[in-house]
Design a binder for these strands. Structure first.
Length: 342
DNA sequence: AACAACTCCAACCGCGAAGTC
DNA sequence: TGACTTCGCGGTTGGAGTTGT
């Protein structure tokens, strides 16, 4: 038996809503409230599918909707949230009062994605590292730095120098232009932590109550990045972005591939990365990368962590970790695939 | 002025999750 | 427990409006 249709489609109207239909729907919902979408059209006297009524109400008729163009601030927020959440439009919309998921999705598809993909080289599917970037590179499957997406942001000279010193790189898709580096601020014996935290505290912050997630607003990314650059002097890294997740003392920053490569090739300190217990709820945002510069308590506890996963790019890691766990490489990889598909 | 190409966005569609019986 | 319903989400489409030639 196939799926039952959401409503009896015979004789129902499709296409654009008329002003009369809008008025009928709005009056009915104001009187009877939202919900029962299936029976709503019949009760309200509308020749529309319940689904269509729901969509019309949510996307157009609701009183709390914000009219007018997306502001620059909202645009930045969308870019930032999209970098974190991907195409989870309803989740993004929940951070933009008065905006609907459909509106944001349309705006992204018609404005922002084109703007981002218009970066030289992106259209060919091959991304050369920008020498000077007023628009950051966007890679499919990758993440775009919010800081880098700031319209008025221009990279400082030392950043450009660092970029220029990097060998020309070719990225193929899928790839990620940023690595997530996660450090426990409280555990880092670093004199500039207070300064960094002060910068962070300048940011507008909000809490997504649905999952108790702390979202950083748009602010002071330049100052934070400057601090972080000086914080990691030995790597001569370019710190691209301080990410939006700040939860208690956990801080997530992103560093460029060149930085990660530098860490990996240094042969010093930790080379392990991306650990997480399988039985914990987590997402890729919270992946951890350790290195010889930023050491955290979590890093020290690496050996004690249960069923850690590692990024596939670390060829040796699969084998060593699976041995530690008494699993085969294939089992571990299957674990990850299962999780990823779940 | 006419046509083509493009943009934008409202609306549709199919699917999966959650709820109900 | 399973069949069915309802709801919500994200991808896609259609067409009105705009811009270019």
């Amino acid at each position: 038996m196939g799926r039952a249709p959401c409503c009896e489609k015979v004789g129902l109207k499709k296409g654009r809503w008329t002003a009369e239909e809008d008025e009928t729907l709005a009056k009915y919902i104001q009187t009877n409230g939202e919900g029962s979408w299936r029976s709503l059209p019949k009760n309200a006297g509308l020749l529309r599918c319940g689904k269509s009524c729901r969509l019309r109400w949510i996307n157009y008729l609701r009183a709390d909707l914000k009219r007018g163009n997306i502001s620059a601030e909202e645009e930045n927020t969308i870019v930032k949230l999209h970098a974190s959440f991907g195409n989870r439009w309803s989740l993004i919309a929940s951070h933009l009062p008065g905006r609907t998921d459909n509106e944001i999705k349309n705006y992204w598809n018609s404005h922002l994605s084109r703007k981002i993909y218009s970066f030289p080289g992106a259209s060919a599917g091959i991304m050369d590292t920008p020498k000077v970037a007023s628009i950051p590179p966007k890679l499919k499957g990758g993440r775009t730095s919010r800081w880098a997406m700031n319209k008025n942001k221009t990279y400082t000279q030392n950043v450009n120098d660092a970029i220029n010193q990097r060998p020309k790189q070719t990225f193929t898709q899928p790839n990620s232009d940023f690595t997530v580096l996660d450090a426990d601020v409280a555990d880092v014996n670093e004199p500039r932590i207070e300064e960094l935290e002060a910068e962070v505290n300048k940011c507008d912050r909000s809490v997504d109550e649905s999952n108790d997630e702390d979202i950083l607003g748009l602010c002071q990314m330049e100052g934070i990045s400057d601090i972080l650059e000086s914080w990691l002097p030995e790597t001569t890294c370019v710190v691209w972005d301080l990410s939006e997740e700040i939860d208690n003392n956990d801080m997530v920053v992103r560093v460029s591939d060149a930085c990660r490569d530098k860490m990996a090739s240094s042969g010093e300190g930790y080379s392990c990365s991306s650990s997480m217990a399988l039985d914990q709820h987590w997402d890729w945002e919270s992946v951890i990368e350790f290195n010889n510069v930023v050491e955290s308590e979590a890093c020290n506890n690496w050996e004690q962590q249960e069923k850690p996963l590692t990024w596939p790019w670390e060829d040796d890691a699969w084998e060593s970790q699976s041995k530690n766990l008494g699993e085969t490489d294939t089992q571990m990889q299957n674990d990850m695939v299962d999780w990823f598909l779940s």
